[in-house]
């Protein structure tokens, strides 16, 4: 954090200098209307989520006979079984590993590529941009057989890298498309100034661009994390003996002929928590955080 501010300082007005003394620590209350609208929205977005969470406290019979009812009696068995089971915690660890590595990889490779596409002029730039964009338009499920062959030939089957590397590849298009305008928005005066200060273009990228594109990087990071967290296809095909990820782990409650819905709901409700923690840690940085720095 401090490193970042130093790097950005030459071109930026210090945030503290901007008028008004509000900071994130001492926020004032907003108008009641805003909170009312906010609560209404939360009710709409969280209603179905709470329904799923509560479903985990019911039996399948209760859910079938009275879909709108509250747990009656309150059955903690599903949550208790899931939360004390190695079949939850071990996959949770794999999921965290895969999601963190994928996110780091996507953000790093993505911002490097987006920097080139946003700020270098060269022949073929349009082609490369379109190439990445085209990656969004073809469904992954169709390409799974050839993809499996690639993963297998590289010796990545049953390895974490077999999930992480393709995961990075599939998250690159969104990442690059979102980042290009963010990077383009950094004023060229800043680049010129840094060049006068003796920074190379790579130095400019490393010391100025990266710190300044915080909100964009964190946004694409969060999106990549969620995509990896819920990813099903890749771990399904890549992992055999490897501990599965959470989305695969939940399949243990679906046998050939039936599903334990209550357990599925409990398992998923619990597996949401780490992803939400990740988001709540980083959302502060999307808004606030480093931003005041860019005032060209």
């Amino acid at each position: 954090m401090s490193q970042v501010t130093t790097a950005a300082r030459p071109a930026a007005k210090a945030k503290a200098a901007s008028k008004g003394s509000q900071s994130n620590q001492s926020l004032s209350w907003g108008s009641p209307v805003v909170y009312f609208v906010g609560l209404l929205l939360v009710a709409l977005s969280m209603g179905p989520v709470l329904y799923i969470v509560m479903g985990g406290f019911r039996t399948n019979s209760q859910i079938t006979t009275d879909p709108a009812g509250l747990p009656d009696p309150f059955v903690t068995q599903s949550y208790a079984t899931v939360s004390t089971s190695a079949d939850f915690w071990k996959p949770a660890l794999t999921s965290v590993e895969a999601a963190v590595l994928t996110t780091l990889g996507v953000v790093l490779l993505g911002v490097m590529a987006a920097f080139v596409l946003a700020r270098y002029q060269f022949k073929g730039r349009g082609f490369f941009y379109s190439l990445f964009a085209a990656g969004l338009m073809f469904p992954l499920s169709v390409a799974i057989t050839p993809l499996y062959t690639v993963i297998s030939k590289l010796g990545l089957l049953d390895k974490l890298a077999g999930v992480v590397l393709p995961g990075i590849a599939f998250a690159l298009p969104t990442t690059i498309i979102i980042l290009v305008p963010f990077l383009r928005a950094i004023p060229k005066e800043l680049e010129e100034a840094s060049a006068l200060d003796g920074l190379t273009r790579l130095g400019f990228f490393w010391r100025i661009v990266l710190p300044l594109s915080g909100p964009g990087l964190i946004t694409v990071g969060v999106l990549a994390f969620v995509a990896s967290w819920n990813g099903y296809m890749l771990p399904l095909f890549v992992f055999n003996t490897h501990t599965p990820t959470l989305p695969l782990g939940v399949a243990q409650f679906s046998t050939q002929h039936s599903t334990d819905t209550a357990a599925v709901l409990a398992y998923t409700s619990l597996s949401m928590i780490p992803a939400l923690l990740f988001f709540s840690i980083f959302e502060r940085r999307i808004v606030g955080g480093l931003t005041g720095a860019v005032k060209g």
Binding site: T259, T261, V264
Partner: peptide
Amino acid sequence: QVGAGSSAGM
């Protein structure tokens, strides 16, 4: 056969 709410559940 998807558990709660399915034909088997009925």
